[in-house]
């Protein structure tokens, strides 16, 4: 059941990425190009997704526990620290260069564009590197990506 529902959740997420245009780097880069060929569509993606999750989460949290697991595991860390902001800044730079964030990079895979085939393994290597850096303490964070 967990595998089936995990698959369906991923499929719905991927369909959302494809239908919304978020899986198309040209559209993402144009959203980020305020001074040029600006395409505001992605604001509607974020708006629709966040509002749906806002309402849905509150309905779900009326339950004592999730359907297929024991507890709700919700991040408790509230600190806005250097690693959060450094990581977000690095991510934003990469997003602005490639037009992919993690979800669309996976969804784009079967279309086999050369840019995707280079981006995705590099992203997985980066996830590994970042996880290592984080596990070893924050101060090396900046050096890791340079």
């Amino acid at each position: 059941m967990r595998v089936l529902w995990g698959f369906l959740s991923g499929l719905v997420f991927g369909l959302g990425l494809v239908i919304s245009g978020m899986a198309n780097p040209a559209k993402v880069l144009n959203f980020l190009d305020l001074a040029g060929t600006w395409d505001p569509s992605l604001a509607f993606v974020m708006g629709g997704a966040t509002l749906t999750a806002f309402v849905g989460y509150r309905l779900v949290w009326r339950r004592k526990a999730p359907v297929l697991d024991r507890t709700f595991d919700i991040p408790k860390n509230r600190t806005i620290d250097t690693s959060l902001l450094t990581g977000a800044a690095l991510f934003g730079m990469g997003w602005g260069i490639g037009g992919f964030c993690p979800g669309p990079a996976f969804t784009a895979l079967p279309l086999l564009a050369p840019g995707t085939l280079v981006f995705l393994p590099a992203m997985l290597a980066g996830l590994w590197l970042g996880a290592r850096v984080k596990a070893g303490g924050y101060p090396q964070g900046k050096g890791a990506a340079s």
Binding site: P25, G87, F91, I97, G98, C101, P102, P114, G115, T116
Partner: peptide, 28 residues
């Protein structure tokens, strides 16, 4: 779908996105 075809740029972008989301504990 139109994906940038500057492959060194895409390699750098992927590395930055992966490292950044791991260090920053999250993505879009």
């Amino acid at each position: 779908q139109t994906v940038p075809d500057n492959l060194p740029g895409m390699a750098l972008a992927g590395l930055l996105v992966g490292t950044g989301t791991a260090i920053g504990s999250g993505c879009t």
